[in-house]
């Protein structure tokens, strides 16, 4: 990306942010983060660990253990806690460290805390906000989520290719009654999370999305 393009993207982002258009960013389907699992997600160059407790409570944390900087997404979920794979430090629902295996008698100070982000589940999609927001999570209006696909293009290029102004949830309509949420991951890539009409055959939609991605990527090549 040229310097000018990059400046334009940054400017666009500022404008969008002021309008509150991208407060909530989809990071994946709920069904892809089942209870008891943790996954890595990159959101606007911020690494996150998205995890779901045994009871089904979702969390979005910075993907970094405060102890040694290991990625928490390499860790594991036991009950209502997330443990780091490196030394087993265990973090509770509020992000504070609740247990250090090497010092079982110690009550960890509350200052040992994972960074947490706002995280909501709506329409079986997981949404996060990088900054505190008053906005509501987008409503998919009865559509159901189909799948997520990585696209090796910056998010602005994809929105442009789809011929749609950038927003948290872009309703494309068409045969499959599509609505898509774009997750900017790096400056060169993004993830498209797709909803389709509730009665659409998901295999057909998935194949259509594959084709859509191929067209978007080849148009830019």
């Amino acid at each position: 990306m040229g310097r000018l393009d990059f400046a334009r993207c940054a400017l666009l982002e500022c404008v969008l942010r002021e309008r509150g258009a991208v407060d909530w960013i989809a990071v994946g389907l709920s069904v892809d983060v089942p209870a008891g699992t943790v996954v890595p997600r990159r959101v606007n160059d911020t690494d996150m660990a998205i995890w779901c407790s045994a009871a089904g409570k979702l969390h979005a944390w910075g993907d970094r253990c405060p102890h040694r900087g290991m990625r928490l997404s390499h860790g594991f979920v036991r009950g209502e806690t997330l443990s780091c794979i490196y030394h087993g430090w265990q973090y509770g629902m509020d992000g504070t460290c609740s247990y250090i295996p090497a010092h079982p008698q110690l009550e960890p100070p509350k200052t040992i805390c994972a960074r947490s982000y706002a995280c909501n589940e709506q329409d079986q999609m997981i949404w996060v906000a990088l900054a505190p927001t008053q906005a509501k999570t987008p409503d998919a209006e009865g559509r159901r989520p189909v799948r997520s696909l990585e696209i090796t293009l910056p998010v602005a290029k994809v929105a442009e290719g789809l011929g749609h102004p950038m927003s948290s949830l872009m309703v494309l309509g068409g045969v499959y009654d599509l609505a898509v949420a774009l997750q900017p991951s790096t400056q060169h890539s993004c993830v498209l999370h797709a909803f389709a009409g509730a009665d659409q055959e998901r295999k057909q939609v998935s194949r259509h999305l594959e084709k859509m991605r191929a067209e978007l990527e080849s148009a830019d090549a």
Binding site: D32, V39, R41
Partner: peptide, 8 residues
């Protein structure tokens, strides 16, 4: 990281 079904 970007393949949820492969991960599962």
């Amino acid at each position: 990281d970007v393949y949820p079904s492969i991960r599962l």
